[in-house]
Amino acid sequence: MSKLEFLEINRNFKSYYRTLRDVNYYLINDTELDKEQIQATTQVLTKLIYGFIRTNGTLFRDMTSEQYNKEYHMFYDDFFSIIENSGVNNVDFDNFTTLLDEIIGVANSRTDTLRRIKKSMQEDEADDEEDEGLEIKISSEKEDDDEEKDAADEVSVVTGGANVVHDPKDVGVTAERAVNDKIKVGSNKSANVIEKVGIVSNEVKTFDVEELDEEINTFESEDVFHYRPKRKRYR
């Protein structure tokens, strides 16, 4: 017996095929039987054999409609033709099962190919969605960068270009730094005014009153100008 890769032999399957061969070999020339009767019997046995084809531990007749239609229904005519013609032409069991095994292999290959195609399409769709999401994210980030860059330009105009903003994220820091610099400049000016006032204040505070009194006290009386009014003469 040849080694089969997909077809699993069971007793009913083998028994029905032997009967099919015997009907077409021993009874075909029986004058008591009508050829139409033999043809009808051949069709019945062919359907029984087809239902008892087993692969992956499941008979065709026990498969769900979904699995059968998806994997094997497309090859129904091929299976049916091999079974009927093999029985009519008295093909030995090994050759018969080898032919069926090849058809099952073709059906399995087709199913596997369709499964891989579907998986590949799903992966492509997932990649497309991922790429689309990435493009949206990049576009959003670019818009955010543009907005931050515009804000940085505005800060640069306000600060007179004193501080160059290299990173848009430093806009807030730069603006705050610019304000602080202006406050610092104003503070320095105020400090200079205060310092000058302080100097004047110190000068006032160091004004020596005692020295002023001494100068007043040492002021000589003879140095005082005496005003003598002229007498008016009467005639």
Rank of each mutant, 00 (worst) to 15 (best):
S2V: 15
F6C: 11
N10Y: 05
R11P: 00
S15E: 05
R18Q: 10
R18N: 09
V23L: 09
N24I: 03
Y25L: 10
Y26L: 13
L27A: 00
D30M: 02
T31I: 09
E36T: 10
Q37W: 12
I38N: 04
Q39Y: 12
T41A: 15
T42L: 04
V44H: 12
L45K: 00
K47G: 07
G51R: 11
F52E: 14
G57C: 10
T58D: 14
R61V: 11
R61M: 12
M63N: 03
M63W: 00
T64G: 15
Y68S: 02
Y72V: 01
H73Q: 15
Y76S: 03
Y76L: 02
D78P: 02
F79W: 00
S81N: 14
I82W: 00
I83L: 01
F93S: 08
F93P: 04
D94A: 15
F96R: 00
T98Q: 14
D101W: 05
E102P: 00
I103W: 01
R110W: 06
R110I: 08
T111F: 14
T111R: 06
R115E: 10
R116Q: 14
K118E: 14
K119N: 13
M121L: 13
E125Q: 14
E129F: 10
D131M: 06
D131L: 12
E147I: 15
D150E: 15
D150P: 11
A151W: 11
V158S: 13
V158I: 15
T159Q: 10
T159S: 15
A162N: 14
A162L: 15
N163Y: 12
D167M: 09
D170F: 01
V173Q: 06
T174F: 00
T174P: 01
E176W: 07
E176M: 13
E176I: 09
K184A: 12
V185Y: 06
N188A: 14
N188V: 14
N188I: 13
K189I: 11
A191Q: 11
N192Y: 05
I194S: 07
I194K: 06
E195V: 05
E195G: 08
K196Y: 03
V200F: 08
F207S: 05
I216L: 13
I216P: 01
E220F: 03
V224T: 11
Y227C: 09
K230W: 00
